[in-house]
Simulated assay, not measured.
Amino acid sequence: MASTSHRALRLLSLLGSRRIWQLRDLAARLAVSERTVRRDLDTLRELGYPILTVRGPDGGYRLGTGHTLPPLLLDHDQALAIAIALQTAPSSVFGLQDDTARALATLQQAIPDTLRAAMESLRLTTLQNYWEFPAPPIDSAALTVVGTAVRLRHILVAELLRADGTRPDPGEPDFTPPRRLEPHHLVVWAGRWYLIAYDPADHRWRVHRVDRLHPRPTTRGFAPRELPDGDLAHFVMSSHDRGDTPAAWPCTGSARLALPAHIVARWAPGGSVVEHLDTGHCRLILGAWSWAGIAGILATFDTDLTELHPPELLDACHRIAARYAGIQTTDSE
């Protein structure tokens, strides 16, 4: 009976994690027969849970509305994932330290002792890595406005901010009137939050960093459009107007690499900027404490380099190449 009850709780947890489950998928996840899953579904219905059957080729089972799930049906891995997410979220969204601490405490009070012990054992202390230069944290209110507009398909009015987060006044050279945008996707890439939106005023798609926007919601809807490039990651990386800037270092340089942008973006140090050029090339803009430091990082990609800027970076590469070329092999005898 204990095994049956545990399986029913797992089944309920699965139903709450996805809109529709097909019978074969539920059976595979629970490692039981489809007949057993049907019996467990009937058990949940007898307990008052609105398990609905969805007809059609893409149908299956889903959990209906109007009933509260039992307190937090989490397994060990889910509990750890939530603990990590809550403890690392404040580094990317401004003003969440107190909220995430309260949420973590609430979770620990609502889960079994074994899971609570696992979560409490994972107390993180986040240290600044030498290469980590995350983007400025985002105001949670602005993130909520943008995310809600994306979800509801509502026009968003947004003012463009400077890199330091200030709003230019009318008459200043960098002032632009507020834009009316059709927000389609909210994307996180390389530690930064981006809005992919269509600008009907000039009939083009744009990528905006959310921390560079002052958004205002509206209730005016719009019809969804198809991206010219259906790959969201490629679309963000290939955008030339997303407003990224490299982190502040004593030396900052750039080079054209004979590698795709998504490869370089995976291994580039935090605070650098990767620009998509074509399917086989990208430009990497990065900084270090010396020109030789930048040259050393570029060498780790083990690919052809061109268009190195500024001249000091090119000179550093030549000096390192000459130094390595002069290394003599030693006789071990």
Rank of each mutant, 00 (worst) to 15 (best):
M1C: 09
M1R: 10
A2H: 13
T4K: 14
R7T: 07
L9M: 14
L15E: 03
G16P: 04
R19T: 14
W21L: 05
W21G: 06
R24V: 14
L26A: 11
A27G: 07
A27V: 08
V32Q: 02
V32T: 13
E34R: 13
R38E: 11
G48I: 07
I51L: 02
L52I: 15
V54H: 10
R55D: 11
R55T: 07
D58Y: 05
R62T: 14
L63A: 02
L63R: 10
T65S: 14
H67Y: 03
L74S: 00
D75C: 03
D77Y: 03
L80N: 06
I84C: 07
I84D: 10
A89L: 15
G95I: 12
G95E: 06
G95N: 05
G95L: 09
L96P: 03
Q109I: 06
Q109A: 14
A110I: 04
D113R: 15
T114R: 13
A117R: 15
A118S: 15
L122M: 08
R123M: 03
T126E: 06
Q128S: 12
W131E: 14
P137K: 11
S140K: 11
A141N: 10
A149Y: 00
A149T: 03
H154A: 01
E159F: 02
T166I: 03
R167G: 06
P177E: 15
P183L: 00
V187G: 02
Y194W: 06
I196S: 02
H203R: 04
H203T: 08
R209Y: 00
P215V: 14
P215A: 10
P215T: 10
R216S: 11
P217S: 15
T218N: 03
T219D: 05
P224H: 02
A233E: 15
A233K: 13
S239V: 09
D241A: 11
P246H: 08
P246N: 10
W249G: 00
R256K: 11
L257R: 13
G270W: 10
G270K: 12
D278H: 05
L284F: 08
A292S: 13
I297C: 09
L298E: 12
H309C: 04
P310F: 01
P310N: 01
L314D: 15
D315F: 02
C317D: 07
A322N: 14
I327V: 12
T330Q: 08
